[in-house]
Computed example of a mutant assay.
Amino acid sequence: MAKFEHLRHQAPRELANPRELLLACAPLRSNVNLSRIARAAGCCGVTRLICTGRAKLDPKIARDAAQTLSIESHRSLVPVLKKLKAENYTLVGLEQTTNSSDLHHYEFDRRTALVIGNEREGLTEDLLAELDAVIEIPVWGLPYSYNVATATVMALYEFCRQYPDG
């Protein structure tokens, strides 16, 4: 029988290539959700987080990610998305729409901006108009969607699964 030794706070794995994934967040209602998203992004090797609205990280939740992430604040996300598209990012929204792709079957481009919507309103029509693709996470029970931080973590994990070395 295999024996396991508990290794707490193991050093992070080295990425062969820097991640070309960034997160762009619509104004979130909860700084707790934003802080959880930042922490997960840090664990995934994401180095850039774009926020709009009154974004403020809780350092107790975001922990070390607040030190490793480049956090940009903007008034509106639409001009940022236009700029990212000009920089050859594929803009992928995380939302339930009529033409969303199932996260389990979506193949991310290595250079992706994952666009996250507001907890209540999701991604607005003006943001959806800028996107190259929209992904959603299947739900098998109620409520009809995952919490924004939980859904973001699931999408981040899938990206990392597809690009484990960066």
Rank of each mutant, 00 (worst) to 15 (best):
G141I: 00
Q162K: 11
Q67W: 06
P79R: 06
V115D: 03
A2N: 06
E119K: 07
D165G: 01
V80C: 05
L91W: 08
Q67Y: 09
V46E: 05
M154S: 09
S145G: 12
T152N: 00
A62R: 08
P18Y: 07
D165Y: 14
N147S: 04
E95H: 11
Y146S: 00
K82S: 15
L127P: 02
N33F: 01
R120A: 15
E119W: 12
L142V: 08
C160G: 12
I137M: 01
S100C: 07
D102H: 03
A65P: 05
Q162C: 14
R29F: 05
G141S: 15
N99G: 03
P59G: 00
T98C: 01
Y146R: 01
M1E: 02
D58H: 02
S145Y: 00
R75P: 09
R8N: 03
A66I: 08
A38D: 07
A155Q: 06
L69Y: 11
L7N: 12
L28T: 01
I71K: 01
H105I: 01
Y157P: 00
L123H: 08
K56I: 02
T68F: 03
P138H: 06
V80E: 03
E136V: 02
E158D: 13
L23V: 05
N99H: 15
L128P: 06
R8F: 15
Y106Q: 07
L49W: 05
L28I: 04
Y144A: 15
E72T: 10
A129E: 14
K60H: 13
T112G: 05
C51E: 08
R29Q: 14
G166F: 15
R110K: 14
R120W: 07
A40I: 04
E5T: 11
V153C: 11
L94V: 10
S100F: 03
L131K: 04
A133R: 12
T97H: 13
P79A: 11
